[in-house]
Design a protein around this nucleic acid. Structure first.
Length: 858
DNA sequence: GCAAGGTC
């Protein structure tokens, strides 16, 4: 006997389909951890009796990912994600779905695919075929593999589908492949880049992951748009009239509603006031209806759970899922809100009538059963209906509320409409019309069971008669102000997402949950969505750089291109290549302009620098580097994946100075107030830019010709103690000034309290040291004559003698007047100094030579 | 650690 393997999208469907197709004769058997296989024998097409095996997958078998080496955030530039290789991996390796399918396919020569009839289902068809291709021969042949097309899980539809088997549609499957690839590349590239850029940069960012996605970002965009509308709202004053007339007195509203000009309203008021009576222009009465609800689909369930029960969509769907697996309700993920033609509505009512909670209503409705409204049949699953009766005590509070709502909603759909009578009275005086309506309930209809929608109290009907006159008791003018809209409710957001095709019924709750968990929005009382500072800053940032990134149309345009693939009118590869190219360009533009988003972050968040951690910007990528204090102390740039060793001691950002060679922010090193200190560039410290600058040294060993922090600018004299060192003015702790040897531990404190100390271009005629200029504030002068500013030699000038730590100055000698000393050891600079050969202590070559240096080095 | 889509 031939064996036919059939595969459904989920275990529950496999069971239903098997029951229908086998006329209840199928025998279930445990498959893998989550799926069962149902077996029976029966007729297959015109090919006689065969053995059927009906099993299922659990949604997608495979998911797309980058090959593993591109999953390193540190080693991969996100832009590479637009072109790097991808691979399909099993969604849930524990399920071993592929080997399960292959095992079930053994001995089968025919495959019938019963996956959901949408593009995703079509894609899963090919995942199934791929999994069994080595077991079922020629699985891609139309003589081997068939596709069942069904639009409802009813006997008629399912058996009809079996009669008219078709073939899987590769184009539709490909369009899903394209969607997966685009979502993966775009989402991950932007997410990684943003996260790495902002991470560690601000101390009070309350999200460790700054994600971007073609669904979640526009969803956030809706919330921020409403926030902006509220912020930008300018209230306007308006004026309106009301008339009080008759006995008993009724209040009538002005037919003009609101008028935005006070003068005009006043003028009209005065016209009316000229009259003592008003004419009853008309009294009309008509019946009006409020329609009963349509059958329940997922999106409506989520909306009402949110707005009516205060249960968010994510939680609502978790509850619905549990109710479904326990058999209390039908499958809860469906777009269809119209009952199938042969749906047994009475049977469902019959289930509900014994209820102690709503049995009375159920019985009343059963005896007055109404045809349900028409709606949309999306061809997926029947609407959500009760399947089994439950008592309140069986569930926790929220589960019961969701279940009860589903039951009452179902009964509402087969109830009468609500009917009421509207009476409208129109009065006229001085040319102005006023009216009053009153509503009186005729038939509560479905609100008898959906009690939360109950009609308000009946309103009194004015006893006015058409054509008669009524006394005007008063006419008054009031002022009002237009108000801003309120924040978006979750229910409204769900509607917007549905309208713009952002996400699906199954993924809408996930996207909303995402933007909450990432701290982009908060849900406040009334389930209103209030964007956080982070959410607002992100959306405003996108709007500054590339507004399309946050527009809902971005998704729909991609969907449109994908539809072309699905219809076969566009080539899969061409569409994909084109879309990837566009988004790569968008991404690169985004990266180039990220600073305009960063400006918003800077305004709203505190840079880590302020929250006490010492760290500074990398000169290559402009991002803050991480300061790792554990030895060896170092700066780590996550973007560039580079480490920069630091000297042991205190390291602080040195104001906002940058190294002119590499753009890294300068740091100030010190070993305490009295200890050594010098500025340094973390890059040059590790990679000296000049041959004569030793490794692991600061700016006081750097021979840059013009940098204000270099040895050449701040060097004063040869060291008083060591052979090779030069004393360099250290400005990092001003107004505590000192001369620090760039080789040994000699430190000479000097000019304490001076506001400014600069090294001049002149050398001391006696000792050869560079002359310095010292400035004190007027009232704080430390000079003996009280003057504010003096120029002289640190060692020889009498004006300075008492301002320079003497023991050092004295200890240092006049002695070494032998050869020129100091200057950077080795290399050209040393040679230059030597060449200059003037002797003395100054280690600094004259400026004219520096121009040569500049030409040589820089 | 990232997207969105299935489903549990």
């Amino acid at each position: 006997m031939r064996n036919v393997l059939m595969v459904a999208e989920k275990p529950s469907l496999a069971a239903s389909l098997a029951a229908i197709l086998s006329n209840g004769r199928s025998v279930p058997r445990r498959g893998n951890s989550s799926c069962s296989t149902h077996e029976w024998s029966g007729q297959f097409r015109n090919e006689g009796t065969v053995h059927f095996k009906m099993t299922s997958v659990c949604g997608h078998v495979m998911s797309l990912d980058f090959i593993s080496k591109f999953n390193s955030w540190d080693k991969v530039d996100p832009v590479e994600l637009f072109g790097c290789p991808t691979e399909k991996k099993e969604c849930n390796p524990k399920q071993q779905m592929r080997s399960f399918l292959a095992q079930e396919a053994r001995g089968c020569d025919t495959l019938v695919l019963w996956l959901d009839c949408d593009k995703e289902g079509e894609n899963i068809c090919f995942e199934v075929m791929d999994a069994v291709q080595h077991v079922i021969q020629n699985v891609y042949s139309p003589k081997v593999t068939y596709r069942a097309h069904f639009s409802a899980i009813t006997e008629k539809d399912i058996k009809g589908a079996m009669e008219k088997l078709g073939h899987p549609n590769e184009n539709e499957a490909k369009s899903v492949d394209a969607r997966q690839e685009l979502d993966l590349r775009i989402g991950c590239a932007f997410t990684r880049f943003q996260t790495k850029f902002f991470q560690g940069r601000y101390g009070d960012l309350d999200s460790s992951l700054i994600s971007y996605g073609p669904c979640q970002t526009p969803t956030l965009g809706f919330c921020v748009k409403r926030h902006d509308d509220i912020q930008n709202f300018k209230p306007e004053s308006f004026w309106y009239l009301q008339m009080l007339a008759g006995h008993p007195e009724f209040t009538l509203d002005w037919e003009r509603g609101r008028v935005f000009k006070k003068d005009l309203t006043n003028m009209l008021l005065n016209r009316v006031k000229e009259h003592k009576v008003a004419t009853v222009e008309s009294v009309t009465t008509k019946e009006a209806f409020k329609s009963k609800p349509q059958a329940l689909n997922t999106v409506e369930l989520m909306r009402i759970c949110s707005s009516g029960l205060g249960i968010g969509p994510f939680q609502a769907m978790q509850i619905a899922e549990r109710l479904y697996t326990q058999g209390y309700i039908s499958y809860p993920r469906t777009e269809t809100n119209q009952y199938p033609e042969n749906f047994d509505l009475h049977a469902v009512m019959h289930v509900l009538t014994p209820s102690s909670d709503f049995g009375a209503e159920a019985r009343a409705i059963s005896s007055d059963f109404q045809t349900p409204r028409k709606g949309k049949d999306a061809g997926d699953h029947p609407p959500i209906t009760p399947m089994k009766l439950a008592q309140r005590s069986e569930f926790d509070r929220d589960t019961w509320r969701v279940y009860e709502f589903i039951c009452r909603h179902f009964m509402g759909t087969v109830s009468r409409d609500l009917k009421y009578r509207v009476t409208t009275v129109k009065l006229r005086a001085g040319g102005e019309g006023f009216s009053c309506t009153s509503n009186v309930l005729i038939d509560a209809g479905y609100t008898k069971v959906m009690t939360w929608l109950a009609f308000g109290k009946d309103e009194a009907i004015p006893p006015f008669v058409q054509g008669t006159k009524v006394a005007i008791n008063d006419v008054r003018m009031s002022e009002g102000q237009t108000g801003p809209p309120d924040y978006l409710t979750e229910a409204e957001l769900i509607t917007l997402m549905e309208q713009h095709a952002i996400g699906t019924d199954a993924s809408i709750p996930v996207h909303i949950n995402n933007i909450c968990q990432r701290n982009y929005v908060r849900i406040e009382t009334g389930r209103k969505l209030i964007p956080t500072t982070l959410g607002i800053v992100l959306v405003h940032g996108y709007q500054k750089i590339d507004p399309e990134l946050v527009l809902p149309t971005m998704r729909s345009e991609v969907e449109h291109a994908l539809t072309l693939i699905a219809k076969g009118s566009a080539d899969f590869k061409a569409v994909l290549r084109h879309a990837i190219r566009i988004f790569k360009l968008k991404f690169m533009y985004f990266v180039d302009h990220i600073l305009s988003m960063d400006m918003l972050f800077e305004i709203n968040f505190s840079p880590l620098a302020e929250s006490g951690k010492a760290h500074s910007r990398c000169g290559k990528c402009r991002r803050y580097m991480k300061y790792i204090q554990t030895k060896p102390a170092r700066l780590y740039c996550t973007t560039c994946d580079e480490n920069y060793t630091l000297p042991n001691g205190n390291v602080k950002v040195y104001r906002e100075y940058k190294c002119p060679l590499d753009d890294f922010e300068l740091l100030a090193f010190s070993t305490g107030a009295k200890g050594r200190s010098f500025p340094f560039c973390p890059y040059c410290y590790n990679h000296p830019p000049f041959r004569d600058m030793p490794k692991l040294s600061g700016c006081n060993s750097c021979t840059h010709p013009s940098c204000p922090h270099s040895l050449y600018t701040l060097g004063i004299s040869s060291c008083v103690e060591c052979e090779t060192g030069i004393l360099v003015l250290d400005c990092t702790l001003s107004p505590s000034w000192k001369m620090v040897c760039n080789r040994c531990d000699v430190i000479i404190n000097c000019f304490k309290g001076a506001v400014k100390v600069t090294v001049e271009d002149i050398r001391c005629q006696d000792c050869g040291a560079q002359v310095v200029n010292v400035v004190y504030k007027p009232e704080k002068s430390k000079f003996k004559d009280g003057s504010e500013e003096k120029t002289g030699c640190v060692f020889c000038s009498m004006d300075f003698a008492h301002l320079v730590e003497k023991h050092r100055a004295v200890a240092s000698r006049q002695v070494r007047n032998g050869g020129p000393r100091g200057g950077p050891p080795g290399g050209n600079a040393g040679a230059l100094v030597n060449g200059h050969g003037r002797g003395g202590r100054g280690g600094r070559p004259p400026r004219d030579k520096m121009a040569q240096l500049a030409a040589y080095f820089v």
